[in-house]
Write a protein that binds this DNA or RNA. Sequence first.
DNA 1: AACACGACCTGGTAGC
DNA 2: TGCTACCAGGTCGTGT
Length: 263
Amino acid sequence: MPELPEVEAVCRKLRRDAVGACITEARLLRKPNRRLERSVAGREITQVARRGKNILLALGDDLTLRVHLRMTGNLYVVDDARLYSADVRAWFRFEDGRALVLEDPRALGVIELLRRRELSSLLESLGPEPLSEEFSYEAFAALARQSRQPAKVFLMDQSRVAGLGNIYAAEALHRARVHPAKPMNRLSARKLSALHKTIVDVLVDAVQSACIAYAGPGRFEARETFTLAAYGREGEPCPACGRRIRRMMQAGRSTYYCPGCQR
DNA sequence: AACACGACCTGGTAGC
DNA sequence: TGCTACCAGGTCGTGT
């Protein structure tokens, strides 16, 4: 379910609700992990950070709880974890009675405890944050020029750019008028530059939209201000040129694009 | 290096 | 109504 914008919305809310909370007890309901459960007890959540689609809850200086929501996860604070039994896969009870809850119907989400070294190797494996200074055009273009990967596959590779997923990769390509199958090293400087810009634009818009719509429990369905131009619109007219949006498969995922303007 | 594909899981929906 | 097939916002491991 969540890509960078939705994960960012989750993190912003957690910064308000969970930072400073002290964990008294934890349970991973799907796959019990006594070591993790024991290790987090008594620890304070000192910081909430996002890197790509990873949520990083710092528990003091040396330990970090990494949560990845994968397709259907959601992470939020509730007043009483016992009231949210349906798809709750893990809970972390706080001293004040509230609890941090991982809700994840498909149970593909990941929770793990990382020591400092493990955290840095995770961070090293990820490409630049597209909404930070490190996502420069030069760095992006340098990677692109040496890759023959199809543009869509390249954008979804977390080691190239961290945080894009199936929806926003498609939307960035559509805005930049780049065909999803175009090999990255064959894009003109003009197209490459357009793509670099639309990645940022799409994510900025989507973060704003996700933050407005996101309230915690529940899904990320309401995209208040972000309208998808291509994703999920097979057969509908392209808002830019009117040609019908097509769907194709790439790396096992659906890709939506406009055969008229994306070339 | 690049790509296909299955595995991990569950639920929703279109079609018969 | 009930069944089947396919689809889903992610990632990893294996094989070609």
